[in-house]
Design a protein around this nucleic acid. Structure first.
Length: 215
DNA sequence: GCCCAGGTGTTTC
DNA sequence: GAAACACATGGG
């Protein structure tokens, strides 16, 4: 890992895990809803909530706009923070409705769309970037807890690098390719879930040797 | 029973 | 800015 660290890490991850085919979601709206629901929450719990929304037939902008917030909270209960998230989903859906729906936002420049998303209650940097990359296909690198953990343990990032600092680290060293960013982030999450947990059992099977040798 | 999970907003210094 | 706290379910 001397010349281009990021490409080497990517290569190893891809060889170890293969294509992840993210985001797990069939429509743009499902991706957006999932991005809010997965905030500090295990994806398995998000899936239950999304199943509830589909079963209730409310996974459309129109239906989510019309549904009562309390009723929405009950449907997404399995994803945790359900009152907070119901409010956030309402805010996102209102934003979509006010801007010609998802279709109406396709033509917005990435920087402007990001700023608009950040103005929505409950949409922070990671959620905004997840939506930009996975729902709109924009070349934006998504930073999450795993990204910081993995790359700080590799010694490539400082422990307390800011979100924009981490993002810039990747975006200035990789081509602005949505397909690459998509797969890279998904692979980092895969690594984090399986081998690079917060409390870190020594697995010995980590595809990145430097990580398993860490401490 | 305890820690953790694909964060964000608010309050406080 | 940065730290401390609230928000909550389900798995290990």
């Amino acid at each position: 890992m001397t010349r281009n660290n990021l490409e080497q890490v990517y290569k190893r991850l891809f060889e170890a895990f293969g294509a992840q085919r993210w985001w797990p979601g069939e429509t743009q709206l499902e991706v957006i809803v999932g991005a809010v629901l997965t905030q500090n929450t295990a994806w398995q719990n998000v899936e239950r909530a999304i199943v509830n929304l589909k079963t209730a037939g409310v996974l459309t902008v129109q239906a989510l706009h019309e549904i009562q917030q309390g009723r929405l909270a009950e449907l997404i209960r399995p994803s945790g923070y359900f009152n907070v998230k119901a409010k956030r989903l309402k805010a996102v859906v209102e934003f979509l409705s006010n801007n010609g729906g998802i279709e109406g936002l396709e033509t917005a420049p990435t920087v402007e769309l990001r700023r608009m998303l950040l103005d929505v209650n409950g949409v922070g940097e990671e959620t905004a970037d997840s939506i930009l990359l996975y729902a709109f296909g924009r070349p934006v690198f998504v930073v999450d807890a795993y990204t910081k953990r993995v790359f700080s343990r590799l010694g490539l990032l400082g422990e307390n690098t800011s979100y924009s600092g981490v993002q810039a680290f990747f975006e200035t060293r990789l081509p602005a390719n949505p397909t690459l960013y998509n797969e890279y982030h998904a692979l980092i999450v895969r690594l984090g879930k399986d081998f690079c947990k917060k409390t870190r059992p020594q697995c010995g099977k980590c595809p990145i040797k430097e990580l398993c040798e860490f401490q």
